[in-house]
Design a binder for these strands. Structure first.
Lengths: 206, 206
DNA sequence: TAGATTGTTAATCGATTAACAATC
DNA sequence: TAGATTGTTAATCGATTAACAATC
């Protein structure tokens, strides 16, 4: 039987991975839960508890091998492979995402870009990226076997586009639109509307 | 004495506000905790409990007046005013953010944009937006009395730029760079690195 | 009035922290 | 070996849910 890991723990794993990859790129070969916790602002006990859900990755008295733990976390998070992504909406944000180099080497690659604006369809974003007609979204996403989408369309279009994405077999949506999406069970959504995060901070200001 | 509200509750208020503003724009004048919860996927009990931290905004048997609750939430979140924002990094993402219309009417306005690339400094992003030299960040942010920054620089520059922002009096940072920032107490940081959110979802895929 | 829905209390559930034996 | 740090257990802390009297 599958051991069910709380979502809140899963959400911390990418943060651990990010910090460990940074240390690794600096040539640091090992760390402790204490040191890692200091860097990312999480208690050492919590890091050890979280990791213990997945195995025993450390050595008493020694801490953790960074290359080993990076490898383990990549495997746990399924980013020891490359996931193709469809970007929906070729406005300023969609194009910025398509240009972003930060996905490479972290498990992701933008493969298709869609828009419904005729002035935009067929134009190149970079060399190989031609903006596709949203009307062809379902067959093209299905054919490319893409499971992840990034949604950068206006709020007014977001739900209807989401319905298309679900129809096309998309299982994970990173949503930049300022609206809560309705999706069937088994489809994951993460919200990254900047306004939500800014308003969370202005509560504490003034 | 100030009543201390848990951060997790504060984080839900902008979601309530977003949904209520959407309903309001549709001409809906009132709602219940049940209905609102359905829309955003949060239990009715939790919504009532959260709101009760700040006052009594509903009427038994009737629910909540949407215009009234919107007004109250805006006031609680301090977005019944307009906050000027400094965007740091005039790359693809920084420029996309500067163009984004979604801040207007939600409490925010991009006021200054900075970069350190000489080929970029002095060029206009839109009519009134000239990219400013990062070397002038501290005095310009101080003079404009800006308290909120959005950080779109590479990870390698993020911490040193953050130190400048803190020096300039910035109290809230929305960080797109893939790195945990170190800030003094009283400075708030929210993380919106897309890779973190994508990796959180790929855990559940395949 | 009768029905609906709030605000709040108490019970449940889940997450974090502290502490330490095991051991590298 | 002595010191350091893990993995894990038990205790604490906090968040969510269920239930219902109050009342519009």
């Amino acid at each position: 039987m599958e051991n069910l890991i709380p979502d809140i723990i899963v959400g911390r794993l990418p943060i651990y991975l990010q910090a460990l990859e940074h240390m690794k790129s600096q040539g640091v070969m090992s760390t402790s839960s204490q040191e890692l916790g200091q860097v990312i602002g999480i208690s050492a006990a919590q890091i050890r508890k979280d990791l213990s859900q997945f195995g025993e990755f450390g050595k008493q008295g020694k801490g953790y091998s960074i290359p080993f733990l990076v490898e383990q976390l990549r495997s746990i998070l399924n980013v020891d492979q490359v996931w193709d992504i469809a970007v929906i909406g070729a406005g300023n944000l969609g194009r910025a995402i398509t240009h972003y180099q930060g996905f490479l080497n972290h498990g992701f690659r933008v493969k298709l870009v869609f828009d419904n604006d005729p002035r935009c369809i067929g134009t190149p974003i970079i060399d190989e990226f031609i903006v596709q007609d949203m009307a062809n979204l379902v067959p093209l996403v299905q054919k490319a076997n893409i499971k992840i989408a990034m949604l950068t369309v206006p709020a007014s279009a977001a739900q209807s586009v989401t319905d298309l994405l679900v129809k096309a077999g998309i299982k994970a949506i990173l949503n930049y639109a300022p609206i809560t999406l309705s999706v069937p069970p088994g489809v994951h959504v993460q919200y990254v509307d900047p306004v939500i995060y800014l308003q969370k901070m202005t509560y504490y200001l003034k």
